[in-house]
Amino acid sequence: MRVSAVLSVVCLLVLAGCAGGGFGSDGGNQGTQTPTTVEETVNAAFVTGGNRTTVTLEVANSAGERERGLMYRESLAKNHGMVFVFEDPAVQSFWMKNTLIPLDMVFVSENGTVLNVAHADTQPNASDSELRSYQSDGDAKYVVEMRQGFADRVGIEPGSKLVFEESRPKVEES
């Protein structure tokens, strides 16, 4: 049983590494692809030392939405981002393939506690082997991507909380 659990985690890491941060491995030309559109949004708040910052998050809760993420987007509104929702908490690894906006990646545990924040820069024209990988410092159920600088501006750090205003988003059933 233990071996199968380890193999499952390894498979997830390999898939995440292949698909990563904006999750995606398509080799399309930047700027010629259409940005991802998702149907569901949620309101949430980051709570940092008594301060509460409300955000609107597009929900990437299907394999296709997680794969495309924020690829090919040219802008994000203030306090607007995307939350990637995973079936089971696990170490998550993202990259910036075909992502045009520098991002803060906020890795969040199942109970809403921020594990770590990665400040991810764009890498135009980088090959897959040249792409930097950004990884959670523990088992993440959610990964929130916001414009780079957001986390520093509002003070998000390990131990901060992500609170969903409505019910927590779930993985879309296939």
Results as ranks from 00 to 15, higher is better:
residue 126 A to C: 10
residue 37 T to N: 08
residue 160 S to P: 00
residue 143 V to E: 01
residue 117 V to D: 05
residue 98 N to E: 11
residue 67 E to D: 01
residue 104 D to Q: 07
residue 161 K to M: 09
residue 21 G to H: 07
residue 169 P to E: 00
residue 150 F to W: 15
residue 152 D to Q: 07
residue 83 V to I: 11
residue 82 M to V: 05
residue 130 E to K: 09
residue 158 P to V: 06
residue 47 V to F: 00
residue 146 M to G: 04
residue 42 V to N: 10
residue 45 A to F: 00
residue 17 G to R: 09
residue 112 G to C: 07
residue 158 P to G: 08
residue 54 T to G: 06
residue 13 L to P: 09
residue 136 S to D: 11
residue 119 H to G: 06
residue 63 A to K: 13
residue 88 D to Y: 04
residue 98 N to G: 10
residue 118 A to I: 02
residue 148 Q to I: 08
residue 124 P to M: 11
residue 146 M to S: 05
residue 145 E to T: 01
residue 136 S to I: 07
residue 35 P to L: 07
residue 70 L to Q: 01
residue 60 A to E: 04
residue 122 T to E: 08
residue 91 V to D: 06
residue 167 S to A: 15
residue 75 S to R: 13
residue 143 V to F: 03
residue 28 G to V: 10
residue 96 M to V: 04
residue 43 N to D: 15
residue 156 I to P: 00
residue 73 R to F: 09
residue 140 A to P: 00
residue 30 Q to P: 14
residue 117 V to P: 04
residue 81 G to K: 07
residue 55 V to L: 07
residue 119 H to Q: 13
residue 157 E to H: 07
residue 93 S to G: 10
residue 17 G to C: 11
residue 142 Y to V: 05
residue 81 G to P: 01
residue 31 G to D: 03
residue 129 S to V: 13
residue 31 G to R: 06
residue 25 S to T: 06
residue 71 M to A: 13
residue 81 G to R: 08
residue 5 A to Q: 14
residue 78 K to P: 06
residue 155 G to K: 02
residue 174 S to T: 08
residue 71 M to K: 06
residue 125 N to Y: 08
residue 141 K to E: 03
residue 138 G to N: 11
residue 111 N to G: 05
residue 54 T to F: 01
residue 46 F to Y: 13
residue 98 N to H: 15
residue 13 L to M: 15
residue 6 V to Q: 12
residue 6 V to T: 13
residue 129 S to L: 11
residue 69 G to F: 08
residue 76 L to N: 12
residue 161 K to Y: 05
residue 104 D to A: 09
residue 39 E to H: 10
residue 156 I to Q: 04
residue 12 L to H: 07
residue 158 P to Y: 09
residue 39 E to W: 04
residue 164 F to S: 05
residue 84 F to D: 04
residue 62 S to W: 00
residue 72 Y to W: 15
residue 145 E to I: 01
residue 154 V to G: 00
residue 109 S to A: 15
residue 31 G to K: 04
residue 7 L to K: 07
residue 107 F to Q: 12
residue 93 S to C: 14
residue 103 L to I: 09
residue 160 S to M: 02
residue 136 S to G: 09
residue 109 S to E: 12
residue 25 S to M: 13
residue 96 M to E: 05
residue 171 V to C: 05
residue 173 E to S: 15
residue 103 L to K: 07
residue 57 L to T: 04
residue 89 P to W: 01
residue 118 A to K: 12
residue 144 V to N: 01
residue 144 V to Y: 09
residue 173 E to L: 13
residue 158 P to T: 05
residue 51 N to G: 02
residue 85 V to N: 05
residue 10 V to F: 06
residue 72 Y to N: 12
residue 5 A to K: 14
residue 165 E to A: 15
residue 84 F to H: 02
residue 168 R to H: 07
residue 170 K to T: 15
residue 174 S to D: 13
residue 127 S to P: 00
residue 150 F to M: 06
